[in-house]
């Protein structure tokens, strides 16, 4: 992360970065010599890298548990409609929020509300007589996603070209707007939900055996599904609200971990968080260095870089042949 902070439009020596971060975090060590450098490192780069890590971790954990509770390897925050809900919220504010210069904050709140609305809809439509069947949940998610996407497209037609550019950038995701004051909330939500979900690891493992077998293993399948969905929606809504809709991380990272170290959720969730964090920090680093001084949206790179590696891993894995 230190290296990631040091690289950018202005390269800062790693040693200086370490000094600046140490100074701010611990209050010891010499004060930074160059205020401009201090500004770049501490006010722009550091929150950005920390946010990238949190968002990557959040998306990966969310994808991992969603894939399990809906028994579908394709599930992720996008498939279950959360991302489209967030997008609609953000796009509404960007387009109709007037000339609000501080659209960033307004869009975040709206995106969070949108993700929660999508989550609530999927939750309500995905169940019948109190039972949430996996297939019904996925299909409800896909349908809700399409409705939100349609609404988003309609809103986009009303947008000015300038707004449209903001919208597009938002839809592909970015952590460029990271600010220190966003971080406490995001940190708490990501760490707390990841920890909580990891506590359910043993039960999520049992759920892999199928609903009926999990019941016979003492798991209240419906309650587990409800609790995990709520936590995943909260987690996803929080990270999408501050980063935009970044695809592929939630889908790919959990599978990557499963294919390499296995599917036991007590390892899968923490390691997905870690790998997701590292991956998004790297992708963000590339997004601001490949085309200096311009920045590329994260959503373009996550898939462009991740997909070939993922496909290579898929071909190499023999365990997938028989299922």
């Amino acid at each position: 992360m230190i290296v990631a902070i040091s690289i950018g439009a202005v390269d800062v020596p790693v040693g200086d970065v370490w000094g600046i971060v140490l100074h701010h975090v611990t209050g010891t060590g010499p004060a930074p010599a160059d205020p401009a450098l201090d500004q770049i490192v501490w006010n722009f780069r550091t929150p950005r890298v920390v946010l990238a890590a949190l968002v990557g971790a959040g998306l990966a954990v969310s994808g991992a548990v969603l894939q399990t509770v809906v028994s579908n390897p394709l599930a992720d925050p996008v498939v279950l409609g959360f991302s489209y809900g967030a997008t609609l919220g953000a796009v509404l504010v960007i387009t109709f929020g007037g000339g609000m210069a501080l659209a960033g904050i307004g869009a975040s709140a709206a995106a969070f509300a949108g993700a929660m609305a999508a989550g609530a809809l999927v939750f309500a439509l995905g169940q019948r007589r109190g039972r949430m069947a996996p297939t019904r949940l996925v299909l409800a998610g896909v349908a809700v996603g399409y409705v939100f996407l349609a609404a988003t497209s309609y809103v986009q037609l009303q947008a000015t070209p300038n707004e449209l550019r903001t919208v597009t950038f938002w839809m592909l995701g970015s952590v460029a707007g990271a600010q220190w004051d966003q971080l406490p909330t995001v940190t708490v939500v990501v760490l707390a939900t990841t920890a909580l979900l990891s506590l359910f690891g043993r039960r999520l493992n049992a759920l892999l055996a199928g609903d009926e077998s999990a019941t016979a293993l003492g798991v209240d399948v419906n309650r587990l599904r409800a609790v995990v969905l709520v936590l995943a929606a909260l987690l996803t809504g929080t990270v999408i609200a501050v980063s935009g809709s970044i695809g592929f991380v939630g889908l790919m990272i959990p599978h990557l971990v499963r294919l390499t170290i296995g599917a036991d959720h007590r390892r899968l969730l923490p390691l997905s968080a870690l790998l997701g964090a590292v991956y998004l920090v790297l992708v963000d680093l590339l997004s601001r260095t490949l085309d200096r001084p311009n920045e590329l949206p994260l959503g373009i790179l996550t898939a462009l870089l991740g997909a070939p590696f993922f496909l290579w891993l898929l071909r190499r894995n023999k365990g997938l042949d028989s299922v």
Binding site: R202, N205, A206, L208, G210, D211, S213, G262, L320, V323
Partner: peptide, 22 residues
Amino acid sequence: LQDGGGNTTGLTVTEIVALGRA
């Protein structure tokens, strides 16, 4: 049961047996 082990890709046999401790 008849769900035949469900979708346990990624779990080893030992890990599946250990589900019994849940």
